[in-house]
């Protein structure tokens, strides 16, 4: 079942990092925001802003063979925002290959 897996995609963290790049490559996507609200860890967020260390972004959870992906993104106004959301979902699905997946895409910024 895992024939489409790339190296690094077998752990949630590895897959999350790979998906972040996949999402950023989609036309119209300006930013990928941490899936968990920063304010749950205010001090961490501030320190991240100062030190430039990235916080974990795309949320990936395995449930047996299935995978649950949640991403929060900012998009530019260059393309219609709903179309960009659909393109992001499609890109995530393409990367996941034949795996059963739930994909959630939340647009939190359009500008």
């Amino acid at each position: 079942m895992n024939q489409s897996l790339l190296p690094g995609d077998t752990t949630p963290a590895g897959l999350a990092a790979a998906l972040r790049d996949v999402i950023l490559d989609v036309d119209g996507v300006a930013e990928v925001f941490p899936a968990r609200p920063l304010w749950q860890n205010i001090a961490g967020a501030a320190r991240s802003a100062v030190t430039g260390e990235p916080l974990p972004v795309v949320q990936v959870e395995f449930d047996g063979e299935a995978v649950d992906v949640l991403t929060r993104i900012g998009v530019s106004t260059a393309l219609p925002a709903p179309a960009v959301a659909r393109s992001v979902a499609a890109a995530i699905r393409e990367h996941l290959g034949s795996r059963t997946a739930t994909v959630r895409v939340q647009l939190v910024q359009v500008r």
Binding site: R86, A89, V103, R104, Q106, Q109
Partner: peptide
Amino acid sequence: RLELRPGRDIPVRPDTPGDILTETEGSI
């Protein structure tokens, strides 16, 4: 802006049934 007043989720029609695509009210 992102965290404190995201507001309601505004649905966007997905291509794949079951996918959940939304825009936050705050972004709109």
